[in-house]
C-alpha cells in the first residue's frame, strides 16, 4: 500500500481495526491521517456509535418499559409451544 493513505483506505482500516489488530505501520499511518482529517475521524465515531448501539443495548434492560408483560395466556401459550417442541 502507498505510504500515504486515502480516506477510502483509512475508512477500511478503521473498520478492520475493530475486528483485528492492525500491523504497527498501518496503525501509525492511520493515526496520522486521523489527526488531520475530520471526516475520517467522524467516520470512526460513527462506527463506534453503531457498535455501541448494537452490542450494549441488552445491558440496559432497565430502560425498557417494565410495565409491559406477557399476559398469563401468552405465557401459557409459549410454555405449551415449547413443551410440544420438546416432547411432541
Amino acid at each position: 500500500m502507498h505510504w500515504m493513505y486515502s480516506c477510502k483506505d483509512v475508512s477500511q482500516l478503521i473498520s478492520e481495526s475493530m475486528d483485528r489488530t492492525l500491523p504497527f505501520y498501518q496503525r501509525v499511518l492511520m493515526g496520522l491521517h486521523l489527526i488531520v482529517c475530520k471526516y475520517c475521524s467522524r467516520c470512526r465515531e460513527h462506527f463506534k456509535a453503531i457498535r455501541a448501539a448494537s452490542c450494549h443495548e441488552e445491558l440496559h434492560g432497565s430502560e425498557l418499559d417494565a410495565s409491559r408483560e406477557l399476559s398469563n395466556e401468552g405465557k401459557e401459550r409459549l410454555k405449551k409451544f415449547l413443551n410440544n417442541h420438546l416432547y411432541g
Binding site: S6, C7, K8, D9, R42, H46, A49, A52, H56
Partner: peptide, 22 residues
C-alpha cells in the same frame, strides 16, 4: 468516495454519545 479515494459524501457530525447511546 471519488476516484482518488476522497470523501464524496462527507460524514456529518452526529449528536450521539456512544456511552449513552441506549
Amino acid at each position: 468516495f471519488n476516484e482518488q479515494g476522497e470523501w464524496q459524501l462527507r460524514p456529518s457530525r452526529w449528536a450521539v454519545n456512544p456511552g449513552r447511546i441506549y
